[in-house]
Design a protein around this nucleic acid. Structure first.
Lengths: 176, 176
DNA sequence: TCGATCTATATCGGTCCAATATAGATCAGG
DNA sequence: CCTGATCTATATTGGACCGATATAGATCGA
């Protein structure tokens, strides 16, 4: 989903600064399947403001950097709904780990083991993060998405634990 | 994984044109977790050639567009291994579907149902494609990756089928 | 008190994708 | 047999997006 639509979506939950929009993906219930960088969020908010889909109020705090708090407008809300009524782009799951596994036969045995260990550890951390979500999900969507994420990570971990031996066996022939 | 490394990886399997490199991701064992577009493959191959990591031979067939067949060089092979020894970037799974589910409470009931139906159908197709892979996996990596993909899609489908009712219930209050 | 971390905005270089252009080959159906 | 669709094959362009970096004061722990 493009960054403009992502920003609009977050702003339907309440006003936020660009910084807070980014943070929402790191701490709260939006993790794992949606993200955007500052380098795309700030320009997106500027353009949304020009187009009247969001409005800004500048809170110049003393002795603190200015906060630009964005609110979604009525036409922004319509544009957001309209975007979700159009056919959705397909998921894109890019995995350097999976790519590397395709070439495990070219790598030293210890490297393959370390890749598996790291990937499993990171996946465990992400799963734990989804499970300890302090805040109660506020919409049925959040609950659904959090469960979906847990199901995916659990299946990945299950597969990795039961099948890693198939790929981490040292080869008789030396890697070229 | 960056497109240059992806190209090098494919070329460790044998010579190929830019077109064939792209096709490999669509038809063969590389699906679902790795991809690259023509707009990045062709420039990448040019740069790899300049740097001596791959070599080209131009097969000018009569009455057919030229084929530029790329081969990996010895230093290309080293560069590829070196890339896989560096820490891997993390997976990035972007899902417009998951994003949309976070806002199901703002959408008409039929739209939510149609999103779920479409997403389930596409996932089933991807799973089927992984399961009917004609060609035997040629490396332990391919077998592992194909099983990993199957495990992930099966878990997704299982979750969607058993939990879709939690999100597709019509709301008492009208969507704004 | 000093470094680390946090809030907050912003830009730049570079990577990558989607769309499009070109062009002949092949193949299926009417 | 012809025609349109699909396939092989390379290439470019505009735009989207990311990662890194710059700035700068606040706060907090050691």
């Amino acid at each position: 989903m493009d960054v403009r639509t992502i920003c609009l979506g977050i702003l339907t939950r309440g006003d936020a600064t660009g910084y807070e929009i980014k943070k929402l993906f790191e701490d709260d219930g939006y993790q794992h399947f949606v993200e955007a960088s500052f380098g795309s969020i700030y320009p997106a908010l500027n353009r949304l403001t020009e187009e009247g889909l969001v409005s800004v109020r500048e809170e110049a705090q003393e002795k603190r950097p200015d906060r630009k708090v964005y609110s979604i407008t009525t036409s922004g809300r319509s544009a957001f709904i309209a975007a979700l009524l159009k056919p959705l782009p397909e998921d894109r799951h890019r995995s350097p780990f999976v790519f590397a596994m395709l070439f495990s036969h070219l790598l030293p045995h210890e490297r393959v083991v370390s890749m598996l260990d790291t990937y499993i550890r990171v996946s465990e951390e992400k799963l734990a993060q989804l499970s300890d979500m302090k805040a109660e999900p506020q919409t049925p969507g959040e609950k659904f998405v959090s469960g979906f994420g847990r199901a995916v990570y659990e299946a990945m971990l299950e597969f990795l634990r039961t099948h890693r031996h198939e790929i981490e066996q040292p080869k008789a022939e030396a890697a070229e």
